[in-house]
Design a protein around this nucleic acid. Sequence first.
DNA 1: CTGAAAGCGCTTACAG
DNA 2: CTGAAAGCGCTTACAG
Lengths: 343, 343
Amino acid sequence: MAVTIRDIAKQAGVSVATVSRSINSATKNQVREETRKKIFEIIKKYNYFPDQIARSLSTRKTRVLGLCMPFRASVFSSDYFTGIIIGAIESARRLGYELKIVLLSETARGLDISDVNKTSAIDGALLVGTRIEDELLPVFRNSDAPWILVNNYSENDDGKTNFVDCDNKKGAYDAVNYLFDMGHREIAFIKGPADSRNANDRFAGYMKALKKNGIKSDKSLFRTGDFTEKGGYLAAQELLADKNNITAVFCADDEMAVGALQAVKDKGLNCPKDISIIGFDDIRLSRYVDPPLTTVRQPIYEIGKVAAQMLVHIVEGKIQTPVSKVLQTELIERDSCAIAARK
Amino acid sequence: MAVTIRDIAKQAGVSVATVSRSINSATKNQVREETRKKIFEIIKKYNYFPDQIARSLSTRKTRVLGLCMPFRASVFSSDYFTGIIIGAIESARRLGYELKIVLLSETARGLDISDVNKTSAIDGALLVGTRIEDELLPVFRNSDAPWILVNNYSENDDGKTNFVDCDNKKGAYDAVNYLFDMGHREIAFIKGPADSRNANDRFAGYMKALKKNGIKSDKSLFRTGDFTEKGGYLAAQELLADKNNITAVFCADDEMAVGALQAVKDKGLNCPKDISIIGFDDIRLSRYVDPPLTTVRQPIYEIGKVAAQMLVHIVEGKIQTPVSKVLQTELIERDSCAIAARK
DNA sequence: CTGAAAGCGCTTACAG
DNA sequence: CTGAAAGCGCTTACAG
């Protein structure tokens, strides 16, 4: 049988209340040092660890954060998933929290986030990988349970959401300006899925940059991908077949950029000589393809880190909500973009 | 205030016991259908969800599995980490469990796995990324709490450990035979860290294949890497400087193989013409380097899946321990190996 | 500084 | 088929 606080109390000749006070940093000063010392000896001797479950039932706090996400392949894209988790777990750990992965059912059965909290025994939620279609957001908003939207805030949002994200629009804007400065005028764009908020913001950034540079947008220059390599390949293939005067393509994520790169090669064209390609995210693979991909880096690890930290602050009531943080992207120049070829 | 079982009982005009029985599949048949129906109406009406914490305290089961690992970079290598987690979480979910990530402190302070279970509120542990130096294993063995060693079993082990792993020795053996059949006789080996069990088993497989083919092992053909790309690069560089007659190098993981490939290129040599390279794991990157890497595929997703499933079976007492499963590796032929060049 | 007692929200023998 | 009651292992007002 496991040793409980009762056993310790009995052996130390004190009440369970005194043992409890001794082992909780907030109350340990209420106990005479000498008493505490004796208690800790007994604790050590019996190798006692307080039961976290009992503690939670009593305090109504679990000290665990939920990383909540739909079970969708794109969320689990290795670099993204790993980055968020490691960032989050580092913060959590430092602040004395653990991390639990909770999968949201695809069939969003009107689950309220406070239900998630109760059924999953978490103090707060990091909401990752949502899409507009999930319709998770509206219902989450009606909850007073602490949660943070990670990486899917939209500038068209309601202003009441806690979130951390990178500046998708600005990142895309920068990418297009970069291409423009290299002389590109016919810049194609491969969008992400229509129901992805950050995909939309990236598109908005593209449009904004076009406008600023006096280029009028041309619908025949857009294609929609699904954030996968294959989707990028297909979209680029179409683009290359239709329009022979494009000199650059901006992809809403690196996966699609990798696919687009392959399409360019398969068409017998050279990147960057004939076509420049620029991606978004800076996944590990970007450095290894040939040519290495120029891209807009999203500080994913930082995002996870900041998000978890922020969530803990909310949970502990140390911060006023709504709260948010927008991290900056960084243009990473590699070899997939070059001065626009004369056409 | 959240609604509790009391509220439901009161509204339904029954006792909490009856409500409790109704909502637990194991006991729901003890309740008259009519009564149950009424109870569920009330539950729905009040949007009641049973508190998992209270349940856990009462049943002494949490229905969460712990993915326990040291906080070490190599564990978090994207493909590995993601593969294990997704595999594990899928099994867990299907069986009604959740997954919590618990970081083991580097400074292994004599933590017993049963303590982990108590302090982390988990029913069982998946032990990932351990090294011999961790000295976690011996202490874990003294515990009766359910746990499974993932991916680090050694054939020299005690036979009492629950584990799932791939057949590292056999995989390495296959790789070397493959090279031998292509005419290679001077086959270098870049080992993993000395305190990694699977690294050692892979080395053992290499040695076994050498012996079987009548090649005597040559110490000058071994180098030790650290499972990272950089380590592989450095080791290969040394190898290439020292021995000019090697025609192939087998790397204990793909990360090192990618590094080795770069070293070969930097030396002005061609892979596979001058030097064949073969890796282990089949990480995503392997398909993208130039030339694409021939490697020994480790079914990492399957490993996570089987491990979680096995753990649940142990936790629920449905299976006799010790229990284990060894999954087979698969040689993936790509373009980094060729017939040995005459020297 | 310390203890007795109530309470956190469930489950489950026990009795009927 | 149902209920009253004890119990899971803690924390925390309350009283002294």
